[in-house]
Amino acid sequence: MEDFYETIIEGVKGEPIGLFGVFDGHGGARAAEYVKHNLFTNLIKHPKFISDTKSAIAEAYSHTDTEFLKTENNLMRDAGSTASTAIIVSTRLLVANVGDSRAVICKGGNV
């Protein structure tokens, strides 16, 4: 099984947050497991997490990718992961994805 998920519900800088993610590994579980353990930590620690969440998400995704690739350096491995995340900060919902995984919002059974 190469799929992982993560959920975090807590407060950051006085704001209620919810972080939800599904990570689908390819070429083994290493990348998906790395993303599970690091993406949201990188996002919460980002200095703009509350003030500019959209930019913080993009930068946290990129930073997590870069750091994973450093762990794989010179190992000649071909591992990767998709990621679909939903981030709630106060009353805002932001959805982000990488790869061929997507999140779909439905209301009353309609997409």
Results as ranks from 00 to 15, higher is better:
4 F>H: 10
4 F>S: 04
6 E>K: 12
6 E>A: 02
8 I>S: 05
12 V>T: 12
13 K>V: 03
15 E>T: 08
16 P>V: 06
16 P>K: 11
17 I>D: 00
19 L>A: 03
20 F>M: 14
21 G>M: 03
21 G>R: 01
29 A>H: 08
29 A>V: 02
30 R>F: 02
31 A>R: 08
31 A>N: 02
32 A>W: 04
33 E>G: 06
33 E>W: 03
33 E>V: 06
35 V>Y: 06
35 V>M: 01
36 K>Q: 07
43 L>W: 05
47 P>G: 09
49 F>Y: 06
50 I>S: 01
53 T>I: 02
55 S>A: 07
55 S>N: 11
56 A>N: 02
58 A>D: 14
59 E>W: 09
62 S>H: 15
63 H>M: 13
64 T>F: 09
66 T>K: 00
67 E>P: 00
73 N>V: 13
74 N>P: 03
74 N>C: 03
75 L>Q: 15
75 L>P: 04
75 L>K: 15
77 R>S: 03
77 R>H: 10
80 G>S: 10
80 G>K: 07
81 S>G: 08
81 S>D: 05
81 S>A: 15
82 T>C: 05
83 A>R: 05
83 A>Q: 13
85 T>N: 06
85 T>P: 00
89 V>M: 07
90 S>C: 07
90 S>H: 11
91 T>L: 05
93 L>R: 13
93 L>F: 09
93 L>I: 14
94 L>Q: 02
95 V>C: 13
97 N>P: 08
102 R>V: 07
103 A>G: 15
106 C>P: 00
107 K>S: 15
109 G>A: 11
110 N>Y: 10
111 V>P: 01
111 V>I: 11
111 V>S: 07
